[in-house]
């Protein structure tokens, strides 16, 4: 058993302190609430940091300077944007399906936040180390289809409706190869628990053993979070902003928040499954985790400024005729490889 350090120690210290002041039955629930607070802190912070990061990265790739007026190096730009969005008028389009329109941004936020429950930020630092960890992530993250369709349908706007319909087509198509690419990792670990998956990568990262799965996962993840080159859902030059067209102010901000929360989420899953999670030399585990996630996020931003947007028929063909067979082949290769390895050892 490895010596436990890092975030877990802090949590234990906190638990001790709480134990002095509170009756025993309240300690667990207050620890849970503190953890939830930390998770929501991370979600809000990632949105603030990633919006700034995205703008700076795209500026860098286009030889611009990006935001540089608000605060040093424009660091406070996102904060300013947040206050701006909060103080904007809330306009509901005429003839919209009122309740669906109101509920869509809220419902979109729930799966985005719920996915954070199973991320192993550090050794033992998992909010809920479910025995079905990765399966839970897949199940929760695919719920994002519904609010997109709701927003598209309820807006009483043809662009929004087309965007919503496209979301369904895209997310359904890329769900299957994504799930199958993760399957290879589950086969090698023999468990869906996130901490087991990270522990299995102590010596070798799974990107070495599962390179095909990693490539398929990254492509499908880009499509799942609707980022370029798979941003047909909100392709600005075709359908304004897709399902978000009719949202203003804070409701629009909630869509944005969920989008960046999802970007962080798929990067964290890529880190956990393929890049060894929090394993790394010298630095504390959580620093490694966040560094690897930042690297993955940068990769997704890099894609955006490298590849042109696909056409919808190309998108469907890529998903069903290239990525799905590739993911199935990967499962077969993994199975054969593991069988031979077992026979030899």
């Amino acid at each position: 058993m490895q010596e436990v350090t890092g975030l877990y120690v802090i949590a234990e210290m906190l638990r001790d302190i709480l134990g002095h002041y509170l009756p025993a039955q309240y300690v667990d629930i207050s620890m849970s609430l503190i953890n939830i607070g930390v998770i929501f802190g991370i979600i809000s912070m990632t949105a603030v940091v990633l919006v700034y990061g995205e703008r700076k990265v795209s500026a860098f790739m286009q030889s611009r300077s990006g935001p540089n007026r608000v605060g040093p190096y424009g660091l406070l730009q996102t904060i300013a944007d947040m206050f701006k969005l909060m103080s904007k008028e809330d306009i509901m389009p005429a003839g919209a399906d009122k309740w669906m329109w109101i509920l869509a941004p809220m419902i979109l936020f729930i799966p985005a936040a719920a996915a954070y429950a199973v991320f192993p930020f550090d050794n033992q630092a998992v909010f809920a180390d479910l025995n079905i960890g990765i399966f839970y992530f897949i199940a929760v993250s695919s719920q994002a289809v519904l609010p997109f369709l709701m927003a598209g349908w309820a807006s009483n706007n043809k662009y929004a409706l087309i965007g919503g319909m496209r979301t369904v087509a895209q997310m359904l198509s890329y769900e299957v190869p994504m799930v199958l690419s993760i399957l290879g990792v589950v086969m090698m670990v023999g468990s869906m628990r996130m901490s087991d998956i990270v522990a299995a990568q102590q010596n070798v990262w799974f990107i070495v053993l599962q390179p095909i799965a990693f490539v398929v996962y990254v492509i499908t993840a880009t499509a799942e979070i609707n980022r370029a080159p798979f941003d047909l859902v909100e392709g600005e030059s075709e359908i304004v902003a897709g399902p978000f067209t009719e949202y203003t102010g804070m409701r629009f901000a909630l869509f944005f928040l969920a989008e960046y929360a999802n970007l962080f989420a798929v990067s964290a899953i890529a880190t956990t499954l393929f890049l060894g999670g929090w394993h790394g030399p010298w630095l504390p585990g959580w620093v490694w985790f966040f560094l690897k996630v930042a690297g993955m996020v940068f990769l997704f931003m890099w894609f955006r400024w490298t590849f042109p947007r696909l056409r919808i028929d190309q998108l469907m063909a890529l998903g069903w005729k290239v990525l799905l067979p590739l993911a199935l082949v990967n499962v077969v290769i993994t199975g054969v490889g593991m069988y031979i390895y077992q026979l030899l050892s």
Binding site: I39, L85, D90, M106, F109, A113, A114, F127, G249, M250
Partner: peptide, 26 residues
């Protein structure tokens, strides 16, 4: 799983809080 349930409830409250703040400001 109880923890996950608690997280889901907070995830429902969080957008309400954000929208409530915006409701006061806008």
């Amino acid at each position: 799983f109880g923890n996950v349930g608690l997280l889901l409830i907070v995830a429902l409250v969080f957008p309400l809080l954000a929208l409530g703040t915006a409701f006061l400001l806008r």
